[in-house]
Design a protein around this nucleic acid. Structure first.
Lengths: 171, 171
DNA sequence: TATTGTTATACTCTATAACTATA
DNA sequence: TATAGTTATAGAGTATAACAATA
């Protein structure tokens, strides 16, 4: 009993032999699962994630990588520990994440002038450029994931999700 | 570049040094993430999962284990391959899942009369009994996750999530 | 003493592929 | 030939703990 987790892992490479996840297999009785909010969120997350992977395959970009790039681009000289906090992962995980993005030529570590222990994270020119195209692809797959909803419903859903996310944080 | 995935993994053990996930760290600019449905779902899922783990710690029950037990209890003599399909995991993963539930004394493999290759899955008496208490704990943590919402909002959220989950499946 | 980034280690989950025994 | 369950193997992600450098 070790390797305890605070957040569910998230990795992602394209589908394969398996047909895409079917959130409601015909003839199956889901019992309580059908009325649990947690299961509904999980179902939706799997579908969203599959769309993300399908749309971002050519970039080799996973959700955590995309999130990290966005956070870094919007928050200049963010420290590695802060990034870990924002993403909800351990510092060692953030190191691995940054290593991969650095290997892709998207992120750069720069020394911090005021604290010699720390380092600032920045997007490279290529990272900044590709993030634009990547963001367009993400937007596209996000739109596909929401296509069953009207504009009003999408706004509603976003608001409701923010509410339940926020409630858990303060608890 | 191998070990391709069709669904995000899901494990779960109780939190630790790390404070719980904060879906909106003060002073951080989330950029596009704040308007992406996929990120909102992911944020909510992390919080829901943390509540699940906290509430089910004493049972050593994870979301996949709970889902499997419910599906097995509601669908008599479900085959292992069918369970894998419902949960959206590979057959080898279903074997491991059933092994763990069998080790806990909750699930039993029974030979299938009509097909000697296949086996039916059943809850043991203990599994059936404990599932009741476990379901109550799950209901409790689910309620806590939804406490920021009114009854009407909860129903609305459930319906909207079901819509976006369903849209992805048929695509 | 506490914190930053790092490394080493272990664990869980997942997928692929091959195997067997049936169909 | 195809399918059901199993096993073996590998890969990705996460966590913990310890470390050196710095605060």
């Amino acid at each position: 009993m070790s390797a305890r987790r605070t957040s569910p892992p998230e990795v992602y490479l394209p589908p394969s032999e398996d047909i895409p996840f079917n959130p409601r297999v015909p003839g199956i009785d889901y019992g309580v699962l059908d009325r649990l909010l947690g299961y509904a969120v999980r179902r939706a997350q799997i579908v969203q994630y599959e769309l993300f992977i399908a749309g971002l395959a050519r970039w080799n970009i996973t959700p955590p990588r995309f999130s990290a790039m966005v956070i870094i681009s919007r928050n200049p000289d963010l420290k590695l520990t802060e990034l870990a906090d924002v993403l909800g992962i351990a510092r060692s995980g953030a190191v691995a994440l940054i290593n991969s993005l650095e290997g892709m030529g998207y992120v750069r570590r720069v020394p911090c002038p005021t604290d010699k222990r720390a380092l600032g994270l920045q997007l490279t020119d290529q990272g900044r450029a590709d993030l634009q195209a990547i963001t367009e692809a993400v937007d596209e797959s996000d739109r596909r994931g929401a296509q069953a909803l009207t504009e009003a419903e999408q706004a509603q859903l976003l608001a409701l999700l923010a509410k339940i996310a926020g409630s858990g944080a303060s608890a």
